[in-house]
Simulated scan of single mutants.
Amino acid sequence: MPQHSAILGTGSYLPRRAVSNQELTDFLAAKGVETSAEWIQTRTGILQRHFAEGDETNTSMATAAAKQALAKAGVDAQSVDLIILATSTPDQIFPSTACGVQAALGAQRAMAFDIQAVCSGFVYALTVADSMIRSGQVRNALVIGSEVFSRLMDWMDRTTCVLFGDGAGAAFLQVSEEPGVLGCELKADGTLGCILNADGRIENGRIVGDPFLRMDGQAVFKQAVSVLGSSAISLFESVDFQLDQLDFLVPHQANVRILHAVARKLKLPESRVVVTVGQHGNTSAASVPLALDLAVSSGLIKKGHNVLLQGVGGGFTWGSVLVRM
């Protein structure tokens, strides 16, 4: 009998410190950077974001989100066979943040590794976990997105520093006789790497290149709307799924204008689009699992709902995963 994977539990973690638009604009004004709380909200839909304190690391946030997902699934960490952590902001070059989470959870049986696809990281990681479960290599998998983008910001660049926040989200997947993950599609275009990047690196003990995140906002907006719409249509066709069967879209939470544009392109009512960007800003690989957990925890997304998860980010990467909760 063919094996499938299903999401049995979700979890999330947001750092203790919530920073409102007004607090951020006051901070930027002291540096001579002009913006306003109204400008941020109007242009992005963001009301606040969370910034990690000194004792909040990528590993600690990811671990907290993972513990929630395990608890909701009613599974002990000892049962986990696989931990995949999507991040662009690891705690160190190596070992991987996933190995740190494995140690913190006491999940000694689990293989563990990081995956780097920036804001598409969670859907990339979910696809890998689904493939490994369906192939019979593992039975129980933790998929996590965790980021500390506040430590990658140039606070003199208002086009980026008002957008991003920190956080972590997780999903627990288990082998299932009934399909939970209905289909996946991943894409990339490396020729567009220049529109969203952080190209600094460590070389001979020093930082070489620009260590801050840089973005061509208009180019990213245009590409995101185009590829997310096309990805959804392509995936639905490949699994013989009709749009009217979709209960909710959980897209990467980058900018409310992108979310609304994608909804229009898919002719999807905005009431069926999960929007949480106002609460936590763009948390890169953490944004999709954060939004999914908030929707599940609030009772908006229920067991049996068909949900489309979508990510788009630097690389340029994008992808879609269709799941039945």
Rank of each mutant, 00 (worst) to 15 (best):
L292H: 07
D157N: 04
Q242S: 15
R17C: 07
R139T: 15
L294T: 07
G9V: 04
D130W: 04
A254P: 08
S12Y: 14
K187Q: 02
V123F: 01
A29G: 08
R324S: 03
S234P: 00
G11S: 07
F94R: 15
L182R: 08
D81N: 04
D154W: 03
Q48Y: 05
F113W: 12
E203F: 00
E56S: 10
S20K: 00
D91S: 09
E185L: 13
F51G: 04
S320H: 00
I202R: 14
A107K: 05
L243T: 13
T317W: 00
V239Y: 01
R257S: 13
S231P: 08
L213R: 07
Q116H: 10
S271K: 11
R264G: 02
D166C: 11
F248G: 02
S146Q: 01
L186S: 03
F316S: 06
L173I: 12
T160P: 01
L24H: 10
Q22G: 10
G200Q: 05
T127C: 00
A110F: 10
L213W: 08
N255Q: 02
S320W: 02
I93Q: 12
E56I: 13
K303D: 11
L14V: 07
G311H: 00
V118F: 01
I233P: 11
M156R: 15
Y124G: 05
L24T: 07
N58R: 08
T276E: 13
C161E: 03
D247T: 13
N255L: 01
T57H: 07
I258S: 11
D210W: 12
G45E: 06
V225T: 05
G319Q: 11
D157H: 10
L8H: 11
F113Q: 14
S12D: 13
F94G: 15
E56Y: 10
D293F: 09
L192F: 08
H50T: 08
Q218K: 15
D114H: 09
A295W: 03
L192T: 02
K302T: 14
Y13D: 01
A69Y: 09
N140D: 11
V262H: 07
V75A: 09
Q242T: 12
L300A: 12
A62M: 03
A30N: 09
G313T: 04
V296H: 06
L142Y: 12
G205L: 05
T44D: 04
E147I: 14
I195D: 05
L82R: 04
S176T: 14
Q245G: 11
D55P: 06
P179Q: 05
A141K: 02
R324M: 04
G278K: 07
A198M: 03
G169L: 02
A69N: 13
L105Q: 03
H252S: 06
W155K: 13
A65I: 07
L259F: 08
A64H: 10
T57C: 12
D130I: 03
C119F: 10
F236W: 10
S234F: 01
A295Q: 05
T159I: 08
A125C: 04
F316I: 09
A198F: 04
G100Y: 02
R17M: 12
S135N: 14
A18Y: 04
S20D: 02
R264P: 11
F113N: 14
L308H: 03
S96L: 00
V19S: 09
N255T: 01
E237T: 15
K267T: 15
R49Y: 05
E237N: 15
